[in-house]
């Protein structure tokens, strides 16, 4: 813990993957263009040179095939970490993940799990082509047997990645690609084990809670700054775990701030915001001072570059919703 390097998120993930390959002889990485090329986002840069072609494996263009193969690898004792090149490219592997991976422990009556991590760079705001900006977290959290997590900064990315690799059940590890190179943070040369259970209070506050995750943390932090200028104290709760949700942190937010606003870039319908709002309605209706509102992406294909900022939650949209709730 002595040396601290200033790393951005993609560098922290690279360091975490290297640490994993060093510490666990059964761990391996697989995906498209992750070897000599180091991955299209360079998350695996240099790792094939360090660990060889049998541990950092370039696969054919075949998401269902190599995600399915990773399931088989787990049966013979390996611990595969699979990179999906872009969010929407995971859809061909959806059947393998929901009909197979997520059901494995259940099919063994709880006895055996699959030590499988699926890394997915996800989300909008990078001016990418169609189907390179999706937010698929709800799909995976709705289907049984998968853990779904989203880090929002370099340190949590490294810690949660190592925790996911050691967890023993399939983990969908969503990396907000917009944050890959957004900022640097001091991180230790060796990541301590993180956890996959807890949301994190990024900023304390008493008047309302802004719940977000991934790249939306930056947006709600911006909104919290502006609210602070108005004399309003906004708590920022970084959800981090989409499934299961950190129920206690959400109920605490309801109890202690009375107002909970949820922000995500995924579509609104049946999104994480809906689940949070339902949880608060069922379990905290008596302490809420205002209905829970949602600021989300739109129920349509994620727009092409020219319109993506219109669809993504912005500081202004978050502020407007926050004011509505405060004036209720």
């Amino acid at each position: 813990m002595s040396e601290l390097a200033q790393l951005n998120m993609v560098e922290a993930i690279n360091q975490g993957l290297g640490q994993l390959l060093e510490e666990d002889s059964q761990a391996l990485l697989m995906g498209e263009d992750i070897g000599a090329n180091g991955g299209v986002f360079r998350a695996t840069a240099g790792l094939q040179q360090r660990f060889g072609e049998d541990r950092v494996i370039d696969t054919p263009l075949s998401e269902a095939g190599f995600v399915g193969a990773a399931i088989g690898m787990c049966l013979v004792g390996l611990h595969p970490v699979v990179e999906i090149q872009f969010d929407a490219f995971v859809y061909p592997a959806f059947e393998q993940l929901i009909s197979q991976a997520g059901r494995f422990r259940w099919r063994t009556r709880g006895k055996y799990g699959l030590p499988l991590v699926i890394r997915i760079p996800y989300g909008g705001g990078t001016r990418a082509p169609e189907l390179h900006s999706d937010s698929p977290e709800t799909l995976f959290s709705h289907m049984p047997g998968l853990r779904v997590v989203v880090p929002s900064d370099p340190l949590s990315a490294g810690e949660m990645l190592l925790a996911a690799a050691k967890y023993g059940d399939p983990v969908i590890f969503l990396e907000p690609k917009r944050m890959y190179r957004r900022g640097r943070q001091p991180v230790p040369a060796k990541f301590p084990d993180g956890d996959l259970d807890h949301a994190l209070v990024r900023r304390p506050g008493d008047d309302l809670t802004l719940v977000a995750y991934g790249a939306m943390i930056e947006v709600v932090e911006g909104a919290a700054d502006r609210l602070q200028d108005e004399g309003i104290s906004a708590r920022v709760l970084d959800l981090r775990c989409i499934y299961p949700l950190d129920r206690e942190s959400l109920l605490n937010a309801a109890e202690e701030t009375g107002r909970v606003l949820v922000v995500h870039e995924a579509a609104r319908h049946c999104g994480v915001g809906a689940e949070v709002a339902a949880l608060l309605q069922e379990e905290a209706a008596d302490v809420l001072l205002a209905p829970t509102l949602r600021v989300t992406g739109m129920d349509m294909p994620f727009p092409l570059a020219q319109n993506e900022d219109d669809a993504l939650p912005s500081v202004e949209r978050v502020l407007a919703a926050a004011h509505t709730m405060l004036e209720y």
Partner: peptide, 18 residues
């Protein structure tokens, strides 16, 4: 859907020199 699993088990065993 079982066939990619069989590939992975066989391939994994090969990587482990089993």
């Amino acid at each position: 859907t079982n066939l990619p699993h069989a590939v992975g088990a066989a391939w994994g065993a090969k990587l482990r020199h089993e």
